[in-house]
């Protein structure tokens, strides 16, 4: 599709927006070029900040690229070609196979993480896209162990009580079943205990 034809299809207001985001010539090749640049940046620095529409899209491409690299390795020709295409700086091809592939073999997918970051203008959404296992300090704080909090202590104790009562009731039931019919004394005792448990 030629540039002029696209021009006719797109309304002028939207055109302005598209131009602003994808550059002057919004062809598919240009978009791919942008994705290549962004991915090269991500593989170089391992954590990048960008607009959410780029970030969310690049995340998908990165996941697929890393999956294939881990699955087929550097000797698989199509994989090598793909990696070679997306990495504009060629030293990153080595980095992908020698550093990222062994690292992410330990991880379960997804290999990337995305964080929405606060901005002053609410309409603009920016994200932080990162590869897992990067050397930078973590974005999210360490999750606290809440076992010692008052609510959790009380609820844990309540649960323990509940289980204890249930076990007691079951054992009492079994005893009453096992008890022979000729001795009514034990049966009545078991009944009493079950009643007592119910009252509790």
């Amino acid at each position: 599709m030629s540039y002029d034809k696209i021009r006719t299809l797109v309304p002028p207001k939207a055109w302005k927006h598209i131009k602003a985001t994808w550059g002057t010539v919004p062809t598919y090749a240009m978009r791919l070029e942008k994705i290549r640049q962004m991915m090269t940046g991500l593989f170089r620095y391992e954590r990048i900040e960008c607009h959410d529409k780029y970030g969310l899209e690049i995340q998908q491409y990165t996941e697929l690229l890393l999956q294939e690299a881990i699955k087929y390795g550097p000797r698989h020709k199509p994989t090598m070609e793909t990696v070679d295409f997306y990495m504009i700086e060629k030293d990153l091809v080595h980095k992908t196979f020698k550093l990222f592939v062994p690292r992410f073999a330990r991880f379960e997918p997804p290999y990337t993480k995305i964080h929405f970051i606060p901005t002053q203008n609410r309409e603009i959404k920016r994200v932080l896209l990162e590869l897992k296992g990067n050397p930078f300090p973590p974005v999210e704080p360490r999750p606290l162990d809440r076992k010692g909090s008052l609510v959790n202590i009380l609820l844990a104790e309540a649960k323990r009580d509940y289980v204890r009562q249930k076990v007691k009731a079951e054992s009492a039931k079994e005893e009453s079943r096992d008890a022979p019919v000729e001795e009514p004394v034990e049966a009545t005792q078991a009944k009493e205990t079950t009643e007592a448990i119910k009252e509790e």
């Binding site: 606290l144 162990d145 809440r146 010692g148 909090s149 008052l150 202590i153």
Partner: peptide, 11 residues
């Protein structure tokens, strides 16, 4: 306060 990791004394 009560939302710390181990708030024994506060509890």
């Amino acid at each position: 306060h009560f939302l710390e990791e181990n708030p024994y004394e506060a509890n």
